[in-house]
């Protein structure tokens, strides 16, 4: 485990924290780039808070029915059930891709129907599984592309935070990693131009923007170019999916976080022959699926990410 962490640039301390988080859902705050755990989810939820929160769900893979989870639609339903039960209403929800498993119209329809039950605005970015229709992404753009540029990227502002949805799953080449491309990077530079460095930034995309594990393609080849553009900003949060497990790191003013899937887990980097769906005992499945809540404390540059599982 330690070796893989070194290889992928994740230090042991963070890996250790991840393991703790994976089981219990610890709330942590970010202050001056130093993550600090302040308690369990229950305590955190009870603590009074100012600011606002939004939710992240990811990798619902509607249509997946293999042994790793014979019913991905029902676990998405459970996740949305959790969302509905949150007392403090989130401002909106983001879905970081792989909404469907095979980009079929019925899969998109099923996902929409269940996700809409949350009664929240949802902002999407596509995963590679969402653009394998005959039109190679047309089905996704027809549904979610309104007001977006290129293959579906966009930005918006909410509560003084600038949100950027990027697409890094289109036209993947032999490099093995995700890809943003020149057009999108040019758009990103334009989008950020003139913004005060004090603007909190949240960037989300399907494949991790930093290289987690290149042997499995878990990273974005030109991701560092996007991160360079974001470096001047005082608070940058990068949220991804794709790898169906929580991995975090903090680098300067940047916090990186990947979310669990609502459908099936994938193995830790290098711990299995391939990144294929990981089969866990049925009674354990819900402890490795989940959703993420992000709370932004106004004016404090503090950010709290709470991961919760579908178990319990």
């Amino acid at each position: 485990m330690a070796k893989h962490d070194e290889d992928s640039g994740i230090d042991r301390r963070h890996a250790l924290e991840c393991m703790i988080w994976a089981g219990t859902g610890v709330l942590w705050t970010l202050s001056g780039g130093v993550p600090k755990s302040i308690g369990l989810v229950g305590e955190a939820a009870a603590a009074e808070s100012k600011g606002f929160s939004f939710l992240q769900i990811s990798d619902s893979h509607i249509g997946f029915s293999k042994p790793a989870n014979p019913n991905a639609l029902s676990t998405l339903q459970e996740a949305i059930g959790k969302v509905k039960a949150i007392k403090e209403r989130p401002a909106f929800m983001i879905h970081t891709g792989d909404i469907t498993h095979l980009s079929k119209p019925a899969e998109f329809d099923d996902a929409n129907q269940v996700i809409s039950e949350a009664g929240l605005d949802v902002r999407y970015v596509p995963g590679e599984h969402d653009i394998i229709d005959e039109g190679r992404g047309k089905a996704y753009l027809d549904r979610y592309g309104k007001g977006t540029k290129g293959d579906g990227w966009y930005s918006f502002d909410d509560h003084g935070v600038h949100f950027i949805g990027l697409v890094n799953v289109v036209d993947l080449k032999g490099g093995g990693l995700g890809n943003l491309g020149e057009a999108q990077l040019t758009w990103l530079a334009d989008d950020l131009r003139g913004k005060p460095n004090s603007t909190p930034i949240v960037v989300f995309a399907h494949i991790p923007l930093w290289v987690v594990y290149p042997e499995w393609g878990w990273g974005t080849q030109d991701g560092t170019r996007a991160l360079e553009l974001l470096k001047p900003f005082g608070s940058v949060t990068v949220l991804n999916g794709h790898i169906h497990q929580i991995i975090q790191k903090v680098e300067g003013n940047m916090t990186f976080h990947t979310a669990r899937s609502t459908a099936f887990p994938q193995p830790a980097p290098g711990s299995a022959p391939s990144p294929g769906p990981m089969l866990v005992p049925a009674e354990k499945l819900r402890s490795v699926l989940g959703l993420t809540s992000v709370k932004i404390e106004q004016g404090k540059k503090q950010l709290a990410i709470i991961d919760s599982t579908l178990a319990g």
């Binding site: 599984h129 394998i132 993947l172 080449k173 032999g174 490099g175 093995g176 290149p214 499995w216 990144p275």
Partner: peptide
């Protein structure tokens, strides 16, 4: 030469 379009580390 070819790759998997979904997982281009597969060559």
């Amino acid at each position: 030469d070819y790759v998997c379009g979904l997982h281009p580390h597969m060559k």
